[in-house]
Nucleic acid binder design. Structure first.
Length: 511
RNA sequence: GCCCCCAUCGUCUAGAGGACUAGGACACAGGCCUUUCAAGCCUGCGACAGGGGUUCGAAUCCCCUUGGGGGCACCA
């Protein structure tokens, strides 16, 4: 990393924006961009603005708006201005700002910074084809930029459709601008296009809409994804053409696939082992990640609070965040670390809190309604038993499902009921002895069950682990379970004895 | 193909010319603890992409090479 101490503060109120387009669910990388903007705003007494860039009617996805708002709120990134909260600089939907864009497009034309282009899609396509065939740089040849007044009048009279293009000026110059995370960046104008600002349907493209809105909304710092870096000079030139004070630009590093190959795509991300990892925030929510863990995790991609802390609060992040401490290099999505972090946060939760968060996940996992689950007595006392055994909320259900079986339990592998270094007959006898001992236990509780079983192991001449392994499988139908004594205490004597009996029956044919 | 950006353990990162025998975390391996599985604790493995400069001194500044990423739409 190169040494950076780039100027990133300017003498005006901090106003930053997150400007997603409702063309799909909230992407995990977009969420990170939103988070950085929010962190910066909160750390500088600024405003965090949410603007919806819905100028592409073809790509509009119906419920994506709701998904984006819900995702931001889930993460705790409440916006100060925008949809559902309003603000002084609205409207915050670009689809409601059309007259503003046409007005400024006209202004550019009137001042010689833009022109109407009547070229057909066919002409553009064949132009491109020729350029590719001749291995030339592809791009618009500025045909309409040099139309005479008569030619222009002719087209207008004919009512030909047109787009408005920006007139890059000078066409052989260069533009240098300052990026707050990378420093000086220079681009030759010969590489820039006379980009379309207004489409033939009258709607603006991103370049026009974003610049106009950023200025009108008095955005002070533009922190956005790396993908915009090559077109940033266009924004700079646009600000200059309008004569507006430019904001501070900061381009955030892209997030790569977990295997480090290519950016995390819109549809799926691939892990080092070839498996795929979700890319939408909603999938992580559904997978049972905690918002506080996700917040912490996202903060750690492309930025770090210091050299030693991995786990920190939003308050600490706000206090420490600065644009020039953003790492410019692309980062592979560290999925394993998310899983670990989520486990950390789960362990830090108090039991009641975790219980409430667990209800919907466990209910769904075992096929009960949330109301039914809330009414069951087993989940709450089981929380401390699984707290340090789960890394996401969804992992609880398979671990606890045996608690929610009221009828007879089945053993997929009856042989698992045979104790270590024991015969089936010996195991059967141990099961019977356990049943006898537990049935006469005066008090049904963790301590008494533990004393009883430990003594029984001695009586039977078995190692404690041998006996407990048999009982564990008998009661939970699994070799791995939460701690056994607590588990029995929660399960209750009746169901425990029932299962001990079922286990005996399952073992009988093997002895 | 052209342009732009980036380059420290497998991965996320600390590093602002001397405090570097390059630090932390995840993952991985081993050990302790232990009723299974976890959690926790301890230990280990493991990197400055390569080559030239500048300097008394370079992970750090410059150049080249290589590698990786992004962008080249009437999408954002």
């Amino acid at each position: 990393m190169t040494a950076r101490r780039h100027h990133f503060m300017i003498d005006r109120p901090v106003r930053v924006r997150f400007a997603p387009s409702p063309t799909g669910y909230l992407h995990i990388g977009s969420a990170r961009s939103a988070l950085f903007n929010w962190l910066f705003a909160r750390g500088h007494g600024g405003r965090f603005i949410l603007r919806i860039e819905d100028t592409d009617r073809k790509r509009y996805v119906d419920d994506s708006m709701h998904d984006i708002l819900a995702g931001l709120r889930w993460l705790g990134l409440q916006w100060d201005e925008g949809p559902e909260v309003g603000g002084e600089y609205g409207p915050y939907f670009q689809s409601e700002r059309l007259p503003i864009y046409t007005q400024w497009a006209d202004w550019l034309i009137d001042n010689g910074h833009a022109y109407r282009c009547y070229c057909s899609a066919e002409r553009l396509a064949s132009l491109r084809e020729e350029q590719v065939a001749r291995k030339e740089q592809s791009g618009y040849d500025r045909h309409c930029r040099y139309l005479t007044a008569e030619q222009r009048a002719e087209r207008e009279a004919a009512g030909d459709p047109f787009v408005v293009r920006f007139a890059i000026d000078p066409i052989d110059g260069q533009t240098t601008f300052h990026d707050a995370v990378r420093g000086e960046i220079t681009v030759e104008h010969s590489l820039l296009q006379d980009t379309v600002l207004l489409k033939s349907d009258g709607w603006p493209t991103y370049h026009l809409a974003a610049v106009v809105d950023d200025h009108l909304m008095e955005i002070s710092h533009i922190m956005r994804s790396d993908e915009w870096l090559p077109s940033a000079p266009l924004g700079v030139l646009l600000y200059a053409a309008f004569g507006w004070e430019p904001p501070v630009w900061a381009h955030l590093p892209v997030i790569l696939n977990p295997n480090g190959k290519g950016k995390m795509s819109k549809r799926h991300a691939v892990a080092p082992d070839g498996s795929s990892v979700p890319v939408h925030l909603r999938d992580y929510i559904a997978d049972g990640y905690l918002p506080e863990a996700m917040f912490n995790f996202l903060s750690n991609i492309g930025w770090s609070i210091d050299g030693s802390r991995e786990v920190f609060t939003p308050e600490d992040a706000i206090a420490a965040f600065s644009i020039d401490s953003i790492n410019p290099s692309p980062a592979a999505f560290p999925y394993d670390k998310l899983v670990w972090l989520d486990g950390m946060y789960i362990r830090q939760l108090d039991d009641d809190d975790l219980y409430h968060r667990l209800i919907p996940f466990v209910a769904q996992g075992v096929g009960l309604s949330e109301t039914e689950m809330a009414a069951r007595p087993e989940l709450r006392p089981a929380v401390p038993l699984i707290k340090e055994r789960i890394k996401t909320l969804t992992e609880a259900a398979p671990m606890l499902s045996f608690f929610f079986v009221d009828g007879p339990i089945t053993y997929p592998e009856p042989a698992a009921l045979i104790g270590d270094k024991m015969t089936a007959a010996q195991s059967l006898a141990a099961l019977a002895a356990t049943s006898d001992a537990l049935s006469v236990l005066a008090e049904w509780g963790h301590d008494s069950i533990e004393t009883c079983l430990r003594e029984l192991a001695v009586t039977l001449g078995l190692k404690v682990r041998q006996l407990l392994a048999i009982v564990r499988v008998a009661v939970t139908a699994a070799a791995v379970s939460p701690p056994l004594f607590e588990t029995l205490a929660i399960l209750g004597r009746e169901r425990t004895l029932l299962r001990l009996a079922s286990a005996g029956e399952a073992l009988l044919p093997l002895s």
